[in-house]
């Protein structure tokens, strides 16, 4: 099968929550070359784009849905947006749910928008990630 507009609204929730630790935040900050002291220590917050790492397990489930027929190596990240309620910080247990919000087709290319809601303990909303990706089915 291939993805189409009838699949808007499908949701994917990562089976396990993500435990945010001090050393992971430090490693990510080092990897993006950001020396900001807010990203170090026991009270560290995560750099803003770390939210994308937290959304990845839900995206993996979306990509693995056989009815969508998507392949990671045919996907290009076109746009990305984050809305933050508060920063992700050390000690957070983050759950991610991705929902397909738009599917547009243009020839072999499918433009898919999906929104991932990140929530903490007790369902507290932390951030929303909205991604637009293009999936190219040419030669497949």
């Amino acid at each position: 099968m291939t993805i189409d507009a009838t699949m808007v609204g499908r949701s994917y929730t990562a089976a396990e929550s993500y435990q945010v630790g001090r050393e992971k935040i430090r490693e990510f900050a080092e990897a993006i070359g950001d020396p900001n002291p807010a990203y170090r220590g026991d009270d560290a917050v995560a750099p803003p784009t770390f939210a994308f790492v937290l959304s990845a397990p839900a995206l993996d489930l979306l990509l693995a849905d056989p009815e969508l027929g998507l392949r990671l190596d045919r996907i290009v990240h076109g746009a990305q947006k984050f809305n933050y309620v508060r920063p992700i910080r050390v000690g957070d247990e983050v759950a991610a749910t991705a929902t397909i919000t738009t599917v547009r087709k243009a020839g072999d290319v499918e433009v898919i928008m999906y929104e991932t809601v990140l929530t903490g303990r007790d369902g507290e909303q932390l951030a929303t990630s909205t991604a637009t990706v293009s999936h190219n089915r040419a030669d497949s």
Binding site: N36, P48, A79
Partner: peptide, 18 residues
Amino acid sequence: VTDWLSDPADLIEYGVRF
């Protein structure tokens, strides 16, 4: 933006196109 802010928590929305 976050180097300019005194607290990165003041970033509430951020989007780009690649």
